[in-house]
Design a protein around this nucleic acid. Structure first.
Lengths: 117, 117
DNA sequence: CGGTATCCATGTTGATACTG
DNA sequence: CAGTATCAACATGGATACCG
């Protein structure tokens, strides 16, 4: 029963970690954007190009999501010295670590669809 | 470049699966509730008891979340023949399958906190 | 091109009160 | 005890216009 309290505390730590994960994987766009970048890894991925590639995302959302991805060290933003300026986005090495986690979500989700159907 | 289109389609399927997963793992309460149930597996887990165990959840939210968990076959709801009625909630065998996925989120999240800090 | 600013529609969550 | 109903607050996302 003391153990009861203890568990709740540990649980909170884990839930905080999950919250961090979900802030990145759980949104509507971030994973889509990262998948796009990862799939066009040898190209220059400008803002407009990403916007065209990620269906229906507004400039506002794309801007916001890219900023958050950059803050989280998952994506790099590089301003190139052209006229007019072009900006290139790319996955970081670290950013690639989200994909295995995403895959485990995909697998569970696919199985779940079968189960529920 | 034809491959481009093809990828986008596959991507959509996977993203739908992820959405399913996140509907369950991504909410504010469902995982907390499931963890509570799983950690009190040999007890009778009534509505009120769960509400006390899962910090700060309102009756409305708990009611709604439990319904969704039941629909998704993750939790069972058993009305017991007492006066006044008591209702018992428990994880299903299938429901347990969410925990490994949750763990992979926890691990990534914990690592990410270190990385960002 | 690469965004930001503003306003608005919608969905999610909470507080409070109430019922069988 | 086990919820539901109602209203309010807040977060999310989109439409549109505009700037350097």
């Amino acid at each position: 029963m003391e153990q009861f309290e203890k568990y709740e505390a540990t649980c909170e730590e884990e839930l905080a970690a999950i919250r961090d994960s979900l802030q990145i994987l759980g949104g509507k766009w971030k994973l889509r954007i990262m998948r796009y970048l990862n799939n066009h890894v040898n190209e220059t991925n400008t803002f407009k190009k990403i916007q065209r590639g990620v269906e229906c995302i507004s400039a506002k959302m794309l801007s916001k999501e890219l900023q958050e991805l950059e803050i989280n060290l998952l994506v790099t933003r590089t301003v190139m010295n052209t006229r007019p300026v072009t900006v290139n986005y790319a996955m970081t090495e670290y950013g690639l670590s989200v994909f295995p986690v995403a895959d485990s979500l995909v697998n569970w989700g696919l199985n779940h669809r079968q189960k529920i159907k």
